[in-house]
Design a protein around this nucleic acid. Structure first.
Ligand SMILES: [Mn+2]
Ligand SMILES: [Mn+2]
Ligand SMILES: [Zn+2]
Ligand SMILES: [Zn+2]
Lengths: 163, 163
DNA sequence: TCCAAAAATGCAACTCTGTTGCACGGTGTT
DNA sequence: AACACCGTGCAACAGAGTTGCATTTTTGGA
């Protein structure tokens, strides 16, 4: 029932959740590298959440994660996402639905640099939110004495799959 | 303690809340006109909420209203805002704080027409959100087969009063 | 290898926003 | 005056997000 993945030399990770797709040893090693590169300790849950984010090409909510990892706790997933955001692995997206979404950052993303921010699209039909990393937010001109720090731009409509 | 405002010929509205600033007869008549123009029946609460929105030049949340009208119920204020939004008197703003804000629409606003949408600014210092009706959202170019319907653009930073 | 410290996890409880059901009471219409 | 309708207030609830604390797991040093 419970799978065991061996990571590194002496690290053994027990994955108790039977409904979780367990990637290959090679994939897990790659994900482990990603975590370590961003100074995040590669625990079982973190590897699985990271794998989940890689397989999805849409932004996911905490509840999405919760429904996909029934054996894990909402709090753990919450803190996992928080850790990922703080370590610049994923970015939080406010798509206007009232529920925060999360998606992997670009390879070369410096979450601090604001000029890199891209547009997000939310489909009113399939309710999915996706990143448009090729579409940067245009310059916004503000009245005198307004100092911009961040910009959030969300387009809602019909996505390519639903149109 | 309780003020009474006479509206129209036979309409008497008792205002029980002592901490509410009660505008002049002329102002109330003007507000009444605004409501009637938008097909909203001018009740006491609606007039006071509308007056409140006029005096504020920032977007307000439901909780803001609740704290300003202690004698009224959250539900009533909630439904008042809902009525105002549906009748195109105010628009709801998602400023990324997780709390919906509301502000009066422009005089000539057709809430249906999306090309009129303006930029909103949220100050990270004073935590206030304001409309920038003169600053329209620039055209956003999307990948093929993406059909835009609405655009939300929020700039966060330091406002003119805080800079 | 073993043990203690540190970190991660799971459980429970809680806050806050938004929302709905329902009963009451005032309004205006005939 | 009778009646239907609408607005209001109270209660209860849902959902997302968050925190405290006990338990488990991992790490790193003896
Ligand atoms: Mn994104
Ligand atoms: Mn506005
Ligand atoms: Zn879609
Ligand atoms: Zn400010």
């Amino acid at each position: 029932m419970a799978a065991i993945i061996v990571l590194g030399n002496s690290k053994r990770i027990r994955l108790g959740s039977p409904n979780v797709f367990i990637g290959s040893f090679v994939l897990m090693k790659a994900l482990e590298k990603v975590l370590e590169r961003n100074k995040v300790r590669p625990t079982a849950m973190r590897l699985l959440v990271l794998q989940y984010l890689f397989t999805k090409n849409v932004a996911v909510s905490l509840t999405d994660l919760e429904n996909s990892f029934e054996k894990s706790d909402r709090t753990t997933l919450y803190r996992t996402l928080k850790t990922f955001v703080e370590s610049c692995l994923v970015h939080k997206i406010d798509d206007g639905t009232g529920v925060s979404k999360y998606a992997l950052c670009e390879e070369n993303c410096n979450c601090e640099i604001e000029t890199d921010l891209h547009v997000h699209f939310h489909c009113n039909l399939c309710k999915q939110t996706i990143c448009l990393p090729k579409h940067k937010i245009p310059a916004i001109y503000l009245p005198k004495a307004f100092l911009p720090q961040e910009v959030n731009l969300v387009v809602k409509g019909t996505c390519n799959k639903c149109s």
